[in-house]
Nucleic acid binder design. Structure first.
Lengths: 171, 171
DNA sequence: CAGCGCGGGTTTCCTTTGGGAACTCACTCG
DNA sequence: CGAGTGAGTTCCCAAAGGAAACCCGCGCTG
């Protein structure tokens, strides 16, 4: 399986991982998200090789997640900044952080977030967009969406059918 | 920078990425989360090499995210199942999926979720745990948490100070 | 005006990781 | 007896990643 095969998969998780699914890209994006916007600053903060940082930034720019903005010409110098798409992707970083806060730092995390609207330190939770209640694994069940393809993913189709059958028994 | 250096970083995102931060582990976890629980089924669904799958499963088990449960002895055969910690990590998969649903499938995703409590198809949103309002990037600002270390991450400290200063100007 | 430092890379070389495919082992089924 | 199944392991080769050096245009400093 080559690197190229991920984006072709009919799976939202796989396609998102094609953008940030390696050891460094998510951390690069984290730095940009909190305002570390220059090549050398990111490289110094993360300690990754300059070659790989160049590749990763180009990859993020290619996917429209980050933009490269010149802050001077002669010689050209650049800031890297989040786009709207990048801000959506930052929700993934938030989820990564929440998990790490809980399981790697035992609730005493290095970074906290203040919600400007209410002024409190906030640990966001996923909530149902219909009823507003928090959603945890087990509170919702997966089913075929509009673009599901049984032929392309028979193992997934089986798993979905089993889940549907199990829920029917309970209901 | 070696593979070993990630878990030592004082950063929740980095430590979580040490668990699922490569090309395959998140997809393996996704399969297990929807009930594809056996070695060959996962390997067949994802198409990754058996060697790498063996390594990734061992890694997930080491981190207590997944358990290996024998469903028969002689010869020993196993199911891989999510732990509580694994279910917390599944929130990251949910975030990955939401991004992919929106940006890679234009709102016609292959998998949808039915929220059992309210019966609706649900696209979970992150909400502040204090006021219950949705939180988007820009609605909250990062600041030093209990275990932040200025010496360890000077570039991050600078960025936090700049953000704090910018907010003060507005307020 | 020679030399130094900065920002943003590129190049070279070497190590590590990953993919493909075949092999193993312990059992079961026909 | 032979084929099939489930869960790995082994070997070899190609791709990706790390370290460190190099480059280039500029602006400052003595």
């Amino acid at each position: 399986m080559q690197r190229a095969s991920l984006p072709d998969q009919p799976c939202s998780v796989a396609r998102t991982l094609d953008i940030i699914g390696d050891r460094w890209t998510a951390l690069v994006l984290r730095d940009i998200a909190i305002g570390i916007s220059r090549f050398d600053a990111i490289q110094g903060d993360l300690g990754l090789s300059r070659k790989v940082l160049t590749q990763r930034l180009a990859h993020l720019v290619d996917h429209g997640v980050v933009v490269r903005v010149a802050y001077q010409d002669n010689p050209p110098r650049y800031d890297y900044r989040m786009t709207e798409k990048g801000n959506d992707l930052a929700m993934v970083l938030l989820a990564l952080q929440q998990f790490g806060d809980k399981w790697a730092f035992g609730g005493a995390p290095p970074i906290a977030w203040r919600h400007l609207a209410c002024g409190q330190i906030s640990t966001p939770v996923a909530c149902c967009d219909h009823c507003g209640e928090p959603v945890r694994p087990g509170d919702a069940i997966p089913l075929r969406g509009p673009s599901f393809d049984d032929q392309a993913a028979p193992a997934v189709a089986d798993a979905l059918d089993q889940i549907a059958a199990a829920v029917d028994v309970i209901v």
